[in-house]
Amino acid sequence: MIISQQKPLADILASLGDSNSVFIVGCAKCATVCKSGGEEEVWQMQEALISSGKSVTGSVIIDEACHMLRVGRDLRGRQQLVDDADASLVMACGAGIQSVSAAIPKKTVAGLDSLFLGNIRRFGQFEQKCSLCGECVLSETAGICPVTACPKGLLNGPCGGMDEGRCEIDAEAECAWAQIFTTVRETGRIANLAESVPPKNYSKIPKPGKLKLK
């Protein structure tokens, strides 16, 4: 799931500038779970904009704002409300915001900051486990991703800052390599600790990424 967070209202107002009427778009999937762009947050945003002197022409919560066709269809269904607004404020991840900016020729304002691809630990607690590196190494690392869990993404073992199994940049966090090492010890899972791992192939993640299923 894409983890996102609402931008401060002051920033949103600054981006809206002299756009006085606003159409708000939320997302029923990730942004709803993150409580950054679901039904409730869209409603609160509407209230906040109105008390800041803006008018809100309407809103819609799209089921997956990253789905471009669906966004186009849902917005067409509310064409009048969209047309009446000077700008649309999108409370979805960066992908969702761009589905909207592609569908509406008017000003589009980002309401959220997109943070990472996250796992849900429990309600309201998200953790980054994968950074979409294009070439998964989990089979060689006992199922724990050092590309993501290590702030430096080191592939060949712990840096010199690791101590007592803790990470140099966060004493609360376990070093990714200590996690891998302990997991191997405790579960007998396989990890390649002894052999040098060659540098990562970054050509596997061309930007912008594209994938067409055949």
Partner: peptide, 17 residues
């Protein structure tokens, strides 16, 4: 090398590499 860091066996893998 960080000889005093623990767990030492974990750091040893990297020293060998």
């Amino acid at each position: 090398a960080a000889p005093e860091a623990e767990p030492f066996e974990l750091t040893l893998f990297k020293l060998q590499k």
